[in-house]
């Protein structure tokens, strides 16, 4: 609900460590995460696709 300056941001926000920033583009780590993210997304996509309606009770 308000405007913040960059200084406010630095004070109030979580910021990544140098290690976290490095991991973001570190190839072996990202290759592993590519597989991991795809696996998580595929599970969620499978769960979300349309399902056949249960027959209405007579």
């Amino acid at each position: 609900m308000s405007s913040k300056t960059p200084t406010d941001h630095a004070r109030g926000s979580m910021t990544p460590s140098p290690r976290a920033l490095f991991a973001r583009t570190f190839l072996p780590f990202q290759l592993w995460h590519f597989v991991w993210i795809n696996w998580r997304m595929i599970r969620m996509i499978a769960l979300s696709h349309p399902r056949r309606r249960a027959p209405s009770p007579r």
């Binding site: 609900m1 308000s2 405007s3 913040k4 300056t5 960059p6 941001h9 630095a10 109030g12 926000s13 979580m14 910021t15 990544p16």
Partner: peptide
């Protein structure tokens, strides 16, 4: 907020 903050992007919500 972390993503905005590390990039120096200000925000108005």
């Amino acid at each position: 907020e972390s993503l905005f903050s590390e990039r120096g992007v200000e925000w108005i919500t």
